[in-house]
């Protein structure tokens, strides 16, 4: 079981915050708050992967991003990265992109529990 790094945009972060009394996150999960998922440098994701962490990017739904294109960019970046990882023979499932609104904190927390136990 490796470390899990979760990049959350403001919206997803608040979502997670709201449910923090209801559900606990596993120890290995480290949440990094970013203003918008579109600003997560893909290099940082690569770095995390190669330092043997798994990465989750959680942010707004595609047409609901307050920065218009942030979520869409992140989604595309992750998808391209996943395909490249697969191509060089790495496990693409170590990177995930999730669309999470402020009211879907529970969904995210549950997913993280599952993901960390994998």
């Amino acid at each position: 079981m490796g470390k899990v790094i979760v990049f959350c945009c403001d919206a997803a972060y608040y979502g997670l915050n709201m449910v923090s009394k209801l559900i606990e996150l596993p120890e290995d999960v480290e949440v990094v708050r970013v203003p918008c998922l579109g600003r997560v440098e893909f290099e940082a994701v690569v770095r995390a992967l190669l330092d043997s962490a798994n990465v989750v990017l959680a942010g707004c739904h595609e047409n609901n991003c307050k920065n218009i294109d942030g979520s869409r960019l992140a989604k595309m970046r992750v998808e391209l990265l996943r395909r490249m990882l697969e191509f060089v023979g790495m496990d693409a499932d170590r990177v995930k992109h999730l669309e999470i609104s402020t009211y879907e904190g529970l969904k995210l927390a549950e997913f993280l529990n599952e993901f960390a136990a994998r």
């Binding site: 290099e43 690569v46 190669l50 990265l81 490249m84 990882l85 060089v88």
Partner: peptide, 11 residues
């Protein structure tokens, strides 16, 4: 580190 480099370059 080489993998990191090559992924980043291609990306």
């Amino acid at each position: 580190e080489n993998i990191a480099y090559h992924l980043i370059r291609a990306y």
